[in-house]
Design a binder for these strands. Structure first.
Lengths: 188, 188
DNA sequence: GTTCGCCTTGGGCACCCGCCCAATAACGAG
DNA sequence: CTCGTTATTGGGCGGGTGCCCAAGGCGAAC
């Protein structure tokens, strides 16, 4: 059996996971303490015992997921040998998300929530900037012209594809690949 | 003085405008009848007299704004002589929005709300598809390779730039132009 | 076994929600 | 003018909200 401390962390983990699911299903502002608690299988009062507020739980859950997803997408890119392999890895990571799965929707919901909360905005901006800088270094290794601007447009295009894919599932990263590869075509 | 019918339409217009502002400020799910009514300068009960529900008001307000903004962006593009002029017009339309203005935020909020409401989703998809088809025809006139896929990526990139620009205002359409132009580089 | 401290529960409080509705005001038709 | 229609108001109802808190459970230390 797990110790008391382990059980506490396990409950926090289940609350974060329930929060992520509900952000995706109902939208950031429609997540309630009772719904999170019920989905996590705990009493409603536990939410405010483990987290200072619902907003704090949402922040922690969303940012944790975003950092994990970005790391999963960027880590292989860091090791990419060339432009082709990097693009293949990036689009593979994109196709791991359908635009309607919890991870995609939490990303988009959190972007918008960041505009209404300065503290959250700072955290989200940090995640996006860090991803853009990793992409920039990859593009520099590839010899792409204007690597910073290219990375910014590429990152925005990936999120935009996710956004549009939620409406039209036929728009996959794979089908977008021949077009996106043109973005890297410019050499210095 | 305006006639009765004109005053009624004027009130509906003010309610739609107030709804748009509040969607941008607070998010789709956090718009309340009382807040909309107060901002429009009318009693709270009028909202349910002129609209069947709050959700119906939000739908009508958001879709009306989206159709107007898309038309404003796409109409000059239809008359564009070549690739350069079309791209200039498209990015000019993009730079008319900062990513934090009501129009930008209503677009993004409505994309996400569309995923939670099938009827709204159909309307939004129609708007996006129509814009993509107009872009496709422009790209065909330019002789761009794979015009459909290019239009889909371009439309997604524009919305993605809007999304990222809300976090980082330095990311303008103007600065993205030299990169985005590469998307059109492929000829058949 | 006893005690202590963290975990957990569910009810309660004050507040806000969408929507309804009776009362009233404003206005156009005759 | 009168009258009927339309527009408008604000209070009320049932319900849901975040957060608090008194009460108890329960494992660990001794």
């Amino acid at each position: 059996m797990a110790t008391t401390a382990e059980k506490g962390e396990q409950v926090r983990h289940r609350l974060r996971r329930a929060a992520v699911e509900l952000i995706a299903e109902r939208g950031w502002r429609a997540v309630t303490t009772r719904a999170v608690a019920e989905r996590a299988g705990v009493g409603q009062g536990l939410v405010h015992y483990h987290f200072t507020s619902v907003e704090a739980l949402l922040r922690e859950a969303a940012l944790g997921l975003m950092r994990a997803v970005v790391e999963q997408a960027a880590e292989p890119m860091d090791r990419a040998a060339g432009a082709d392999e990097g693009m293949r890895l990036l689009l593979g990571a994109l196709d791991a998300h359908t635009g309607t799965d919890p991870a995609s929707l939490v990303f988009l919901e959190t972007y918008l929530a960041a505009g209404r909360d300065a503290a959250l905005g700072g955290e989200v901006r940090g995640i996006v900037v860090a991803f853009r800088e990793r992409t920039t270094r990859w593009l520099e290794r590839c010899g792409t012209a204007e690597p910073e601007r290219t990375a910014a447009v590429l990152a925005a295009a990936v999120d935009g594809l996710l956004l549009h894919r939620g409406l039209d599932p036929s728009l996959t990263g794979g089908s977008a690949r021949p077009v996106l590869e043109r973005l890297l075509g410019g050499r210095r």
